[in-house]
Lab assay of single mutants.
Amino acid sequence: MTEYKLVVVGAGGVGKSALTIQLIQNHFVDEYDPTIEDSYRKQVVIDGETCLLDILDTAGQEEYSAMRDQYMRTGEGFLCVFAINNTKSFEDIHHYREQIKRVKDSEDVPMVLVGNKCDLPSRTVDTKQAQDLARSYGIPFIETSAKTRQGVDDAFYTLVREIRKHKEKMSKDGKKKKKKSKTKCVIM
Score class of each variant (00 low, 15 high):
V125R: 10
D126M: 10
D126L: 06
D126V: 08
D126W: 07
D126N: 14
D126R: 02
D126E: 09
D126A: 08
D126F: 08
T127G: 11
T127E: 12
T127Y: 11
T127K: 09
T127C: 12
T127A: 10
T127H: 07
T127R: 05
T127I: 13
K128L: 09
K128T: 13
K128A: 12
K128V: 08
K128R: 10
K128Q: 14
Q129V: 12
Q129T: 12
Q129W: 13
Q129A: 14
A130Y: 15
A130P: 02
A130W: 15
A130M: 15
A130F: 15
A130N: 06
A130R: 02
A130I: 15
A130L: 15
A130K: 03
A130Q: 06
Q131R: 15
Q131D: 08
Q131I: 05
Q131F: 06
Q131W: 04
Q131A: 10
Q131S: 11
Q131V: 10
Q131E: 14
D132W: 02
D132C: 04
D132A: 07
D132I: 03
D132Q: 05
D132F: 02
D132L: 04
D132E: 13
D132K: 06
L133W: 12
L133I: 08
L133V: 09
L133Q: 07
L133A: 09
L133C: 06
L133S: 07
L133N: 09
L133P: 03
L133T: 07
A134R: 01
A134E: 02
A134L: 03
R135T: 10
R135E: 12
R135G: 11
R135A: 11
R135M: 13
S136Q: 12
S136R: 08
S136F: 06
S136C: 08
S136V: 04
S136L: 09
Y137L: 13
Y137K: 05
Y137C: 08
Y137I: 14
Y137T: 08
G138W: 00
G138R: 03
I139A: 05
I139S: 04
I139L: 07
F141D: 00
F141S: 01
F141W: 05
I142P: 00
T144D: 01
S145F: 04
S145L: 01
S145D: 06
S145A: 04
S145W: 02
S145H: 04
S145Y: 03
S145E: 08
K147E: 13
R149E: 14
R149G: 13
R149A: 13
R149V: 12
Q150L: 15
Q150T: 13
G151T: 11
G151R: 06
G151W: 08
V152Q: 11
V152I: 15
V152E: 03
V152R: 04
V152S: 04
V152C: 10
V152W: 15
V152P: 04
D153S: 13
D153I: 13
D153K: 13
D153V: 13
D153T: 14
D153H: 12
D153M: 13
D153Q: 13
D154R: 06
D154I: 05
D154N: 09
D154Y: 05
D154E: 13
D154A: 09
D154C: 05
D154V: 05
D154P: 04
D154Q: 11
D154W: 03
D154T: 10
D154L: 08
A155G: 04
A155F: 01
A155Q: 01
A155I: 08
A155H: 01
A155N: 00
A155S: 03
A155T: 01
F156K: 00
F156V: 12
F156R: 00
F156E: 00
F156D: 00
F156A: 02
F156I: 15
F156N: 00
F156T: 02
F156Q: 00
F156C: 05
F156L: 10
Y157V: 15
Y157S: 13
Y157G: 13
Y157N: 11
Y157L: 12
Y157C: 15
Y157I: 15
Y157P: 04
T158S: 09
T158N: 08
T158E: 07
T158K: 04
T158P: 01
T158I: 03
T158A: 12
L159T: 01
L159S: 00
L159F: 00
L159K: 00
L159H: 00
L159D: 00
L159V: 03
L159W: 00
L159M: 05
L159R: 00
L159C: 02
L159N: 00
V160D: 01
V160P: 00
V160T: 04
V160M: 07
V160K: 08
V160R: 03
V160E: 01
V160Q: 05
V160L: 05
E162K: 05
E162S: 03
E162V: 01
E162M: 08
E162N: 05
E162H: 02
E162D: 02
E162F: 01
E162A: 04
E162G: 03
E162Y: 01
R164E: 11
R164S: 14
R164L: 04
R164F: 03
R164V: 11
R164G: 07
R164N: 02
K165V: 08
K165E: 06
K165Y: 01
K165R: 08
H166K: 08
H166E: 06
H166Q: 05
H166T: 09
K167V: 03
K167Y: 02
K167T: 05
K167Q: 13
K167I: 01
K167H: 08
K167C: 02
K167A: 07
K167F: 02
K167M: 02
K167E: 04
K167N: 10
K167D: 09
K167S: 05
K167L: 01
E168R: 07
E168G: 06
K169L: 09
K169R: 14
K169V: 15
K169G: 14
K169S: 09
M170F: 06
K172S: 14
K172Q: 04
K172P: 02
D173I: 06
G174W: 00
G174S: 11
G174E: 11
K175P: 13
K175I: 04
K175Q: 15
K175A: 15
K176F: 03
K176G: 15
K176A: 15
K176S: 12
K176C: 11
K176V: 02
K176T: 09
K177W: 08
K177S: 11
K177L: 08
K178A: 12
K178H: 09
K178I: 09
K178P: 10
K178Q: 11
K178F: 09
K178M: 14
K178W: 06
K180R: 15
S181L: 09
S181E: 15
K182V: 01
K184G: 14
C185L: 01
V186Q: 15
V186A: 06
I187V: 14
M188C: 02
M188T: 09
M188V: 05
M188G: 14
M188S: 13
